[in-house]
């Protein structure tokens, strides 16, 4: 049994305890009423996105010019737009686009930020200096304007928007992961693994990265609020998902023409954006309070 690794890797321990940890996390979350509400809202949005075909009273693109610009009623709870499309249905379908954007950006930005951060924190010295300088430079860019310019150059569309947002959204994650890695790399079990001859890559991926994941997830959750807002801004400016896709920001933009008389066309989608981003914010706040009790509410 010479080649068995004498220590259980943290990933394994983590996996076995993951179910329990999640359950404990959820019971902690239930004690934070705001955070819990945020969690429920996010769950509802995900369900709405997944089951949009079943939930939405009308197809997103069903036009009925005879019913154009109707105010909210029993038939159309949130009214109809200029093509007579049901706004509620479009919002439900639009949840798909929002969730897809948010999750795609997070899926890009989380791992990228994490890897850059822990690499800098773990190796320190020159690697750290270079990576962090690069991070700081990107951090110093105005992200929305840069995303706009990128989207303009690459051509409008949902995928461009996702890339453009990702380009500027990773630095905060990297900084956070670096700070965590600086602490973790000096712990006993990393030292022990090092003594047993674990390679750099193994240490980074199996020992350091898992320890940094919880705070990265918290940060990502808070970021999701910003991503929702940036994506909606791009949509509003015509650089995100293109019509007739029911993107919330684009719906506001289209409804703007009627805002003084048929206010609901532009106003209703805004509530969807506000509630989504609010939910991510309160959930993120609550997660931070739970995972890091030292951090008092700022």
């Amino acid at each position: 049994m010479q080649d068995t690794f004498p220590l259980k890797t943290p990933t394994q321990t983590r996996m076995s305890g993951a179910g329990m940890a999640l359950r404990r996390f959820y019971s902690d979350l239930r004690r934070e009423p705001l955070g819990h509400a945020g969690f429920i809202v996010i769950m509802i949005l995900i369900l709405a996105a997944v089951f949009a075909p079943l939930l939405a009273p009308y197809p997103a693109a069903r036009q009925s010019l005879g019913e154009a610009l109707q105010s909210p009623s029993a038939q159309h709870w949130l009214g109809t737009d200029e093509f007579g499309r049901d706004i509620l249905s479009r919002l439900i379908w639009g949840a798909q686009i929002t969730m897809r954007t948010v999750l795609s950006v997070s899926a890009i930005v989380g791992p990228v930020g994490l890897m850059i951060g822990i690499t800098a924190g773990y190796f320190g010295g020159r690697t750290d200096a270079i990576l962090m300088r690069f991070t700081d430079v990107v951090l110093s860019f105005p992200s929305l304007v840069l995303a706009l310019a990128f989207a303009a150059a690459l051509g409008a569309g949902l995928n461009t928007a996702i890339i453009a947002i990702s380009l500027t959204a990773w630095p905060p994650i990297a900084r956070l992961a670096r700070a965590e890695a600086l602490v973790v790399r000096n712990t006993d079990y990393v030292a022990a693994a090092r003594i047993y001859g674990a390679s750099h890559l193994r240490l980074l991926l199996l020992y350091i990265a898992p320890m940094c994941v919880p705070s990265v997830v918290v940060r990502l959750t808070l970021n999701m609020a910003t991503i929702t807002l940036t994506a909606a801004s791009l949509g509003f400016l015509g650089l995100g998902a293109q019509p007739p896709m029911p993107e919330w920001g684009a719906m506001i933009s289209a409804g703007r023409r009627f805002m003084l008389d048929q206010w609901w066309v532009a106003v209703m989608p805004g509530f969807a954006i506000l509630i989504t981003s609010l939910a991510f914010n309160v959930l993120g706040d609550a997660m931070r309070d739970i995972l890091d009790p030292r951090h008092t509410r700022g």
Binding site: A225, L229, A232, S233, F236, G249, I252, R256, M259, L260, W263, A266, V267, P269, G270, I273, L274, S277, L278, F280, N281, V282, R297
Partner: peptide, 26 residues
């Protein structure tokens, strides 16, 4: 104060502008 700042962190500024126009102008 917490509610005001939470909403402020979450509100799409262009939409808030539209709401403002509808309410205060129209």
């Amino acid at each position: 104060a917490r509610i005001i700042s939470l909403v402020g962190h979450s509100i799409p500024v262009f939409w808030f502008g539209i709401v403002g126009l509808v309410v205060f102008y129209a």
